[in-house]
Design a protein around this nucleic acid. Structure first.
Length: 679
RNA sequence: CGCGGAGUGGAGCAGUUGGUAGCUCGUUGGGCUCAUAACCCAAAGGUCGUUCGUUCGAGUCGAGCCUCCGCAACCA
């Protein structure tokens, strides 16, 4: 039973204003949401697309402290950056606002107060760690100490990463605040909780019975939570950044960011439509859709609906299409590790190529499981699909028309069976695309649109108008007419997916007016209609461009390794007598040559003050043989001889291994007599 | 055994209620030459993670095991 709705409110997860937006955000949320919204608008449905920055929470305050500025400075910086890059990228929000806005503070505060007055919260007092230097309570993750199980240092308040055991902050031995480094003290604090357990019954019915159509990952996760039994969830925090808890005796307490953020959807609607916002949030004939990533499922399917239900006057989401995650070149995207393709950088480095990224992210969208973004795939999809299939077909149709018919749409003559067959193939294109879009299957929908161009290329190859031009211009006219109608259909079909390119194509075809409902029509262009000059719809992306991006990521990876480098722990203590057993000497390199058929080995002849000795060492990747001749090296002189590649090595040359695995030979700072002992 | 999701030809993905395993890219061969060396056709290539089970028949249902991702801090 399909329920009928009059309008749709679409929200997309609020990006956290603690960093820029990257391809993972786009693929997971903003591109699919934007496609969906553009599609609904094309169908002339009433739709509102709400976005905004999430600007509260602990991490922003920490970042501000680190950078020596205010939290407001941080959110101003990232809000502006995110907002501008979304706009340039063509994410068509009706409003993109922020949770630090006055409207939001008032509304979130009001909803909290309403729930408070209705007795929907419970109060609990507990002891939590408090940092007396930083003057704040500490989230679990901001406390480190010694793990009570494996006794390794650096365990976090919630988990020890060494042994994997789950902890609570009070388990830690010698707890330390990661903010100030001081020893935290336990202090009593009161918080408000939303008793989710009280909502379990209706949530169970609403999700598990009434919304079986939700994606398996969404449905499954909800079911799992419900089956485990819901627990009361804190809705306040001890913090000085956020929306003050609007009740008496709540100084120093703010709304928990997860309570306030989703209300941001509503506040931003209110900011846009101060008078009619309630229609979009309270009218049962409004359909509410949340686009989110998989980490957000529980909050949008359980916590937020429970909040709305408790308030009483709001509608609940009809669907929560959630994507899985996008990885980057095989590794998890990470803001803190700078492992990402940042939108604002992409826009600068690939000017005018918004649609290429939109296309790739949709074609490879993580709709059912985690996927991987690679630059090689990005290039291949651009060159082999956008350029070779879509752009090329349009170019062929337009160039041929200009060549044979002076850029005017020729009238179709009688259609052959093959023509009819071709036209039949895309007659259902509208229904197909809509079918997929209605189910939030954007990958399939876009593929369907692409099929139009594939049909076109095949049609031209089969009918060969360039040959017929010598004998039968009437037939050529028909073929070109059909090809151009196909091109016009492409301009409509791709409008939700690739808005920039669709506009460009319409410009080439010289059509200002178009209607989504005409998709599939074979008479979009009238005979005699003048076309504009064809331009390339998409450009090839050269290897060098892709290599530069890959290099950029490799550099990042290297920088990360440097940053994360930590010397290996010191090994077990040994007695001096053990050390004395080693005979370390200085020797002068007399000869040095590569060992044949070995990549890594160099063969040395060393002057050791007694007899010369041969040593083989695996440093060929880092040193040329000639640069070592005459140099002094340290070596272990009494190591048992060993055969390497058939050569007997009498000792071991000492070198230091750098964090990237490169080797540096150890050498005395002043020249000494060969055979000198190292002590 | 915390809870969810996922594991399909070289790569990335589809596979609806169980009935001859599909698509895009890549590879190989052929065709075409209007087109951004692009387009079209054909072929090769898979014991559908693994073991066991239900069934006339399982990628599809059930059970165990292995691996990857996510949630429980931050993060789409």
């Amino acid at each position: 039973m399909e329920k009928k709705f009059k309008r749709t409110t679409v929200t997309s997860a609020l990006p956290y204003a603690n960093g820029p937006v990257h391809v993972g955000h786009l693929a997971g949320v903003y591109v699919p949401a934007d496609i969906y919204v553009r599609y609904l608008r094309l169908k002339k449905e009433d739709v509102l697309f709400i976005g905004g920055s999430d600007e509260h929470g602990v991490p922003i305050t920490i970042r501000a402290r680190k950078e020596g500025c205010t939290p407001q400075d941080i959110v101003d910086r990232y809000h502006t950056l995110i907002k501008e890059s979304f706009e340039e990228f063509g994410i068509s929000f009706d409003i993109y606002s922020r949770t630090s806005s006055k409207t939001h503070h008032e509304l979130a505060s009001g909803i909290f107060r309403t729930l408070y007055d209705k007795g929907e919260f419970i109060e609990k007092t507990s002891e939590q760690y408090y940092d007396e230097e930083a003057h704040q309570f500490l989230a679990d993750r901001y406390i480190t100490g010694e793990c009570p199980h494996c006794h390794s240092e650096g365990a976090y308040g919630d988990q020890c990463e060494k042994c994997g055991s789950a902890l609570s902050p009070t388990d830690l031995i010698n707890p330390k605040s990661t903010i100030s480094g001081s020893k935290p003290v336990l202090r009593e604090t009161k918080h408000w909780f939303l008793p989710l357990d009280k909502h379990e019954e209706w949530l169970r019915q609403w999700i598990l019975e009434d919304h079986k159509e939700w994606r398996p990952n969404v449905y499954g996760q909800c079911k799992s939570w419900l089956d485990m039994g819901l627990q009361p969830r804190a809705v306040s925090r001890d913090l000085d950044w956020g929306i003050p808890v609007p009740v008496e005796d709540a100084e120093g307490k703010v709304l928990y960011v997860w309570f306030d953020a989703p209300i941001g959807y509503i506040s931003n609607t209110k900011e846009l439509l101060p008078d009619s916002w309630e229609t979009w949030w309270k009218d049962p004939e409004t359909r509410l859709i949340h686009f989110i990533g998989k980490d957000n499922i529980v909050f949008h399917c359980i916590v937020f609906p429970a909040m709305l239900k408790a308030e009483g006057s709001y509608i609940l989401p009809d669907n929560v299409p959630s994507n899985e995650f996008l990885n980057l070149e095989g590794d998890k995207i990470s803001t803190s590790r700078n492992w990402a393709v940042w939108l604002h950088e992409y826009l600068v480095e690939f000017p005018g190529k918004q649609d290429v990224l939109r296309y790739v992210l949709t074609a490879n969208a993580p709709e059912t499981k985690d996927n991987d973004f690679t630059w090689k795939d990005f290039q291949a999809r651009n060159n082999n699909e956008l350029v070779a299939v879509f752009g090329n077909f349009v170019n062929r149709a337009l160039v041929l028309t200009h060549k044979y018919f002076d850029g005017k749409v020729p009238a179709a003559d009688e259609l052959t069976d093959y023509d009819k067959q071709t036209l039949n193939e895309f007659a259902n294109i509208k229904a197909d695309i809509e079918h997929f879009l209605n189910q939030f299957r954007f990958r399939d929908a876009q593929k369907e649109a692409m099929n139009l161009a594939r049909i076109g290329n095949k049609y031209l190859a089969d009918t060969e108008p360039w040959k017929l031009a010598k004998t039968d211009m009437d037939r050529v006219a028909t073929i070109m007419n059909i090809s151009l109608q196909l091109s016009a259909n492409l301009a409509i079909a791709f409008e939700p997916f690739l808005p920039f390119s669709a506009a460009k194509l319409r410009e080439m075809l010289n059509i200002q007016q178009f209607d989504w409902n005409e998709l599939g029509s074979t008479s979009l262009l009238e005979a005699g209609h003048a076309l504009n000059k064809p331009e390339l719809l998409f450009e090839k992306i050269e290897d060098s461009v892709i290599e530069a991006q890959v290099q950029k990521l490799l550099d990042t990876k290297k920088a990360n390794e440097e940053l994360n480098y930590k010397a290996n722990p010191i090994r077990q203590t040994v007695e001096f007598t053990d050390f004395e057993k080693l005979d370390i000497r200085v020797g002068t390199v007399l000869e040095c040559q590569k060992v044949p058929k070995a990549d890594k080995l160099l063969q040395f002849l060393i002057e050791d003050g007694l007899e010369k000795r041969t040593i083989v060492s695996g440093i060929a990747k880092y040193y040329q043989p000639e640069e070592l001749v005459g140099k002094q090296v340290c070596f272990i002189a009494n190591l048992a001889p060993r055969k390497l590649k058939g050569i007997v090595s009498e000792g071991m040359i000492l070198s230091a291994e750098n964090n990237d695995g490169t080797l540096a030979v150890v050498t005395p700072m002043k020249e000494v007599k060969p055979g000198s002992e190292v002590k």
